[in-house]
Computed example of a mutant assay.
Amino acid sequence: MLANMGNEIYRKIEQVKLLPLYTATDLTYLDRLEDILVKNNVRFIEVTFRSDLAIEAIKKLSQSNELIVGAGTVRTQKEAKDAIENGAKFVVSPAVVPEVIEYCIEQDVPVFPGTATPGDIQRAMEYGIKVVKFFPADIYGGLKAINALSGPFYDVKFLPTGGINEENFMEYVQNDHIVAVGGSFIISESLIKKDDGETADKALKSLIDKINLQK
Rank of each mutant, 00 (worst) to 15 (best):
Y10S: 03
K60T: 02
I84Y: 10
T25M: 02
I68A: 03
D26V: 05
V16T: 15
A57V: 05
Q15F: 08
V74I: 12
R50K: 13
F90K: 14
K81R: 12
V47S: 04
V69G: 01
V38A: 04
S51I: 06
D35G: 06
K12W: 00
T73N: 09
G72H: 04
E85R: 04
L30I: 13
R75E: 14
L30E: 07
A83G: 04
Q15W: 03
V38D: 01
S62T: 01
T28I: 09
Q77F: 03
T48E: 08
I58D: 08
T23V: 15
Q77N: 13
Q15I: 10
K59V: 05
A83L: 11
Y22D: 06
K78S: 13
L53D: 09
A57F: 13
V74G: 10
K39N: 06
T25H: 13
K60S: 04
L21R: 03
E46I: 12
L30C: 11
I45E: 00
T25D: 11
T23L: 04
I36Y: 09
Y22H: 02
G70C: 10
N65A: 05
T48R: 05
V91S: 06
V74A: 10
R50F: 11
L21H: 13
A54R: 01
N41Q: 13
D26P: 07
A57P: 08
T25F: 11
I45H: 00
L19T: 13
E46R: 02
G87S: 05
T25A: 01
I55P: 07
L30S: 08
P20M: 04
R32Q: 10
P20E: 08
Y22A: 04
Y22M: 02
S51F: 05
G87Q: 01
A54H: 04
S51T: 14
Y22E: 05
A83C: 08
I36K: 01
F44T: 00
T76C: 12
E34G: 01
K89S: 02
L53F: 07
V69W: 04
A88K: 07
A54F: 03
Q15K: 15
K78F: 09
L53R: 11
E46S: 07
E34H: 00
S64G: 02
K89F: 11
